[in-house]
Design a protein around this nucleic acid. Structure first.
Length: 388
DNA sequence: TCGGATT
């Protein structure tokens, strides 16, 4: 990769300013009487950035609004992976306001970015984000906020919803408090407790960093994107498995916009590779973010299409699922269900794929596929364990 | 023979 090595930024939600010039320019930073800069009207936090957006793309997008004093895409200290958020400090408060008005809610790939004023940097607001699971499906975001608000000021909250069933709660969500100690109190008070009228207790814990996809999921998506760019969809394995024609050829009555959106829906902004046998991955910089800005992605934006895989051997592991499903398209997650005590596979697992047609092709091809001495049963996951 | 979930 020839890309300039971007700095690895700590996981702290802090903005390190390049510092004021020391003189007060007409549109320059506001200097308070004690000499500290007041960034409250110029400094923005940007959330839900696409996983592979680069510092350069980030700066390019927000620089299109006005002069930037400093900006940072926040990355994992160890892996260098984007944590999906960043800070932009404008010179002119009017530009900060303009950025919120024009860029908040912008859809980029599968994300809808959030642009808002950043809170002043402080140690006490770090690690104040909670992950909540086991929520009753009927509980709304407002209900959840009400439950948690007794412990402090809530900055953000969210309940994750199922993409296919049009917004049914997945029973998990997030609550970010203003202060870490408020979050700690909420864990003490609510973890393992049953909300009023709920049948099951909820789990409340500190959240992981955003978008911590497995490295393998990222690699798989990169591979898919790169390979398809030059050879079209991988169908060598499809042909081995079935007589179904390769997908991606000819009109697709179910999704006529797919070719246009293909690059955006997949993991990369763009991957160029030499047309050799082994793909090389060298990200390219797109010239203008405006090409992305005009596109509104439609359809599922959530987890993807969940596939149930039955009749795996007790020894099966995640890698077999990656190998089986990866050739059909973008796989975002695989899971082998294991017995808690023996740690052996219970005979089934799940695979999540981004695109419906690829998931359908994988199912059509892999259902009935013989893996060792077993015949797999593969289908879309049902919502409940009842049979048809 | 259909989990656990990480914006």
């Amino acid at each position: 990769m020839s890309r300039m090595v971007t700095q690895i930024i700590s996981t702290m939600e802090t903005q390190v300013s390049n510092g004021p010039s020391g003189t007060s320019l007409p549109n320059g930073p506001v200097i308070s009487t004690n000499g500290a800069t007041d960034d409250s009207k110029t400094n923005l936090i940007v959330n839900y950035l696409p996983q592979n957006m680069t510092q350069e793309e980030f700066k390019s997008l927000f620089g299109s609004i006005g002069e930037i004093e400093s900006c940072k895409l926040v990355r994992d200290k160890i892996t260098g992976q984007s944590l999906g958020y960043g800070f932009v400090n404008y010179v002119d408060p009017n530009d900060a306001d303009k950025a919120i008005n024009t860029l908040n809610g912008l859809k980029l790939q599968t994300k809808t970015i959030k642009v808002s004023y950043a809170r002043p940097s402080s140690a006490s607001i770090r690690d104040a984000n909670l992950y909540v699971s086991g929520l009753p499906k009927t509980m709304t975001q407002k209900d959840m906020e009400q439950l948690f608000s007794q412990y402090g000021r809530i900055i953000t909250s969210r309940i994750l919803v199922d993409q296919v069933t049009a917004g049914i709660s997945r029973g998990v969500g997030f609550i970010r408090f203003d202060k870490r100690n408020e979050a700690e109190e909420a864990i003490k008070g609510l973890n393992g407790q049953k909300p009023l009228g709920a049948a099951e207790p909820i789990t409340v814990k500190f959240a992981n960093n955003p978008s911590q996809k497995t490295g393998q999921a990222l690699l798989t998506q990169l591979y898919q994107t790169a390979a398809r760019r030059y050879t079209g969809p991988l169908h060598h394995q499809t042909q081995r498995f079935s007589l179904i024609p390769p997908f991606g050829k000819g009109p697709d009555p179910n999704n006529s916009t797919k070719p246009i959106l293909d690059n955006l829906l997949n993991a990369s902004y763009g991957v160029k590779s030499s047309p050799s046998l082994l793909p090389r991955f060298s990200p390219i910089t797109i010239d203008s973010m405006t090409s992305l800005a005009g596109v509104n992605l439609t359809g599922p934006t959530g987890a993807g299409w969940c596939i149930f895989v039955y009749n795996l051997s007790p020894e099966a592991d995640e890698s077999v699922l990656w190998q089986l499903f990866g050739p059909f398209g973008a796989v975002t997650n695989v899971k082998v269900i294991r017995d808690f005590t023996t740690n052996k596979c219970k005979g089934f697992g799940f695979v999540t794929m981004t695109n419906y047609d690829e998931a359908a092709m994988a199912i059509a091809s892999l259902n009935g596929y013989r893996l060792g001495d077993r015949v797999l049963q593969v289908s879309f996951k049902t919502s409940k364990q009842h049979k048809a």
